[in-house]
Design a protein around this nucleic acid. Structure first.
Length: 172
DNA sequence: GACAGATGAAGGA
DNA sequence: TCCTTCATCTGTC
């Protein structure tokens, strides 16, 4: 079995995200590391390595970068690359699919997501699935708030979540 | 099998 | 109101 992932940098206004692709699509997205004064090492995939990339991945990466920029600017992504959720549970995928339905400026609570997937009591489990989301930003876990409209948590940091919501016109 | 968790709701002060 | 407690469900180790 070949689970090797191809890692590519996605340059955005918020820094350099790292996108990891499998043979079937975007598998992971990593937030920019706080690494001031040392720009991301694009060398890692320059030259010959880049030429070895399958055409599909190059195209997915263009879509991913464009989608990232749109979402970070508070707009809806025009399109998304295929997402590779291989190995993830049905429950997690259901939660993430539900989050994908949320447009910019729209939020739901953990409880609402739980009800939407037909498991109204699985609110804590929804929180767990959010935390396990391998593709933040594109799968908009930042649009999920606690029932009292508090910000809840965020794997990429509460401040990042607050900033992204603010760009979409939501003040917490 | 036990435990932890990005919650929610209910009850008491 | 605000705070505390507990029920619930799922994932991970």
């Amino acid at each position: 079995m070949n689970n090797q992932l191809v890692t590519l940098p996605a340059l955005t206004r918020d820094g350099v995200f790292l996108a990891r692709y499998s043979e079937t699509g975007l598998a992971e997205l990593e937030f920019p590391k706080p690494n001031p004064g040392k720009p991301f090492q694009l060398r890692a995939l320059d030259g010959a390595s880049r030429r070895l990339l399958p055409g599909d991945i190059r195209q997915w990466h263009r879509i991913t970068t464009a989608a990232l920029k749109s979402v970070l600017a508070g707009r809806a992504a025009k399109s998304l690359p295929p997402l590779d959720w291989t190995g993830k549970t049905e429950f997690q995928q259901a939660v993430w699919r539900e989050m994908l339905k949320l447009g910019p400026g729209k939020t739901k609570s953990y409880g609402e997501i739980a009800r939407a997937i037909g498991k109204p009591k699985a609110v804590r489990a929804v929180g767990g699935a959010c935390g396990a989301n391998p593709i933040p930003v594109l799968v908009p876990c930042h649009r999920i708030l606690a029932a009292n409209k508090l910000i809840g948590g965020f794997s990429g940091g509460i401040e990042r979540k607050r900033a992204m919501l603010k760009r979409e016109g939501i003040e917490i």
